[in-house]
Design a protein around this nucleic acid. Structure first.
Lengths: 226, 226
DNA sequence: GAGGATACTATGCGCTTGCATAGGCGGGTG
DNA sequence: CACCCGCCTATGCAAGCGCATAGTATCCTC
C-alpha cells in the first residue's frame, strides 16, 4: 500500500529481514554473513527468517529479485523522463541503489544480478543509438558491444567507490565528492584518450598481431599467411 | 594449462599453499573458502598451512602482498617499455594477473588491494600527462581525479568479465572475445559519448543544482540510521 | 466464538570450521 | 654419533553455523 519509503519500523518483518540481509550480505559477503545476525538486525528470531525464506540461499535470491525490481522501476521512470541524459541515468541508478551498493557490487563481481546489468546496458544502447545517428565514421564494434563495455565502465565507479574516493580525496557519497566525480566524468566522457588516428593505428596493429597469433598467446589456431 | 610460470610441483609448499589460496579465495570468497580445502588443493596437510601462515587472515594478507609484488614488477617492465600505450598496459596487467583475476576483483570491490589500484592509477596519470600537453581547453577536474576514475573504468572490464562476455557474445578470455573487446575499447576511447558543448552544459547545470543541494541526491544522501 | 491458517519464538541437533597440540621425519652441525 | 631445528602430519576440540521441530500468539473467516 505504502510504496513511498516507509520507516523500517513500519515495514513487514519479511521486508525488514530482506533489507537486513542486503546489508549483511553486502558488508560481509554471502558466506560471511550469518542468518542469526541478519535476524537480530531485523529484530526477529532466526526461526522467522527460515519461515519466510526457507534457506539462506533462497534469502539471497529474494535479495537479488528485489534489486531487479528496483532497477526496473528506475528504468520505467527514466523512460518517461526526458531523453536527455543517459549518463545521469547511471547516476540516478546508483543513488537509488545507494543503500544496497555494496551488495550490488558483490553480486555483479560474482557474475550474478544479470538482469540489473542487462537493463542498464539496454539503456546505454538506447543512448548510443541517438549518438550513432550523428556519427560519420563506422564504429569499430556493434552497438551492443559498445553499450555493454560502456555500462561496465559506468558501474566501475560504484563498485570501486572506496578506491575512487581515495583517489579523489573526497568520499563519492559526500556532496563535494559527488560533485568532483561528476565533473571528472563529464570531462572523461567528452574528451577521448585516443585520437581517431591513434585508434585506427592500434586497430590495424591489432589485426596484424591477430594474424600471426601474437607472442603472448601461443595457440596456433589460424593459418599464418606467410 | 599453458601458463608461463613453473610447474606447481616445483614450487615450495608455501608458494603452493598461497597459490591455492588465491584460487579458493577468488572462487568462493574469503569466508566461503576453507583452510582444509586450500591445503588439499596445495597437496599438504591443514597443519602445514597453519605452520607457514599462522591464521587464515594472515594467509590472505600474504595473498594480497603477493599480488602487490606482481603488479609492481609489471610496472617496472612497463616503465622500461615503449611509452606508447597506456591502454594495453592495463591489458597486459590483466593478462599477467589473469589466473588471479577473480581474487583481484574481489579484493578491489571490498576496498582492499589499494597498492594495486594506486599503481595502475599512477600509470594512467602518466599517460594523461602526455595527453594534456596536446590539449587546449582546461580540464574539468585535475589530472589525478581523471586518472583515478579512468583506472576504475579500465578495471571494470576485468571485474565484470562475466557480464561483459555475455553482452559481447564471446568470452573475453577467448581469442575472438579479446579481439572484439579490444576493438570496442578502441572505439570507446576514441569516440566521446558527449560533445564538448553538451559537457559544458551539463557542468553548468551541475553547478546550479549544487547551489540548492540538488533534488536527485536527496534520497541517497541521508538514510535514517538507528 | 470455534477453527484454522499465519506469524513468530524457543530449543536443539548435526556438521563444519579455524585453530591448537603432540609427534614424526630428514638433513645439517658439533 | 647425538643433537637439534625447520618442515610436515595426525588428531582433536570448542565454537559457530544452517537448518529442523515443537510450541505459542495473533488474526481472519464463517
Amino acid at each position: 500500500m505504502t510504496t513511498s519509503r516507509p520507516d523500517p519500523e513500519d515495514l513487514t518483518a519479511r521486508a525488514r529481514i530482506r533489507d537486513a540481509a542486503l546489508r549483511h550480505f553486502g558488508e560481509h559477503g554471502f558466506e560471511g554473513a550469518t542468518t542469526r545476525a541478519i535476524a537480530e538486525t531485523a529484530g526477529v528470531s532466526p526461526g522467522l527468517l527460515r519461515h519466510h525464506f526457507g534457506t539462506k540461499q533462497k534469502l539471497r535470491e529474494a535479495c537479488d529479485a528485489h534489486l531487479v525490481k528496483l532497477i526496473s522501476r528506475i528504468n520505467e521512470q527514466a523512460g518517461a523522463d526526458t531523453p536527455a541524459s543517459g549518463m545521469n541515468y547511471v547516476a540516478a541508478s546508483m543513488a537509488a541503489l545507494g543503500p544496497y551498493q555494496r551488495y550490488l557490487a558483490r553480486a555483479l563481481t560474482e557474475g550474478r544480478a544479470e538482469p540489473v546489468f542487462d537493463a542498464m546496458a539496454q539503456m546505454s544502447e538506447q543512448w548510443l543509438a541517438g549518438l550513432d545517428e550523428r556519427r560519420s565514421d563506422p564504429p569499430f564494434a556493434d552497438r551492443k558491444a559498445r553499450a555493454t563495455v560502456g555500462t561496465a565502465m559506468a558501474l566501475a565507479v560504484g563498485i570501486l567507490h572506496e578506491h575512487v574516493s581515495r583517489g579523489l580525496g573526497a568520499d563519492v557519497s559526500s556532496q563535494e565528492g559527488a560533485h568532483l566525480l561528476a565533473l571528472t566524468l563529464l570531462d572523461l566522457y567528452s574528451h577521448p584518450w585516443l585520437s581517431p588516428e591513434e585508434a585506427a593505428a592500434y586497430r590495424d596493429a591489432l589485426d596484424k598481431t591477430r594474424a600471426d597469433t601474437g607472442a603472448t598467446l601461443r595457440s596456433a589456431k589460424e593459418h599464418p599467411d606467410e
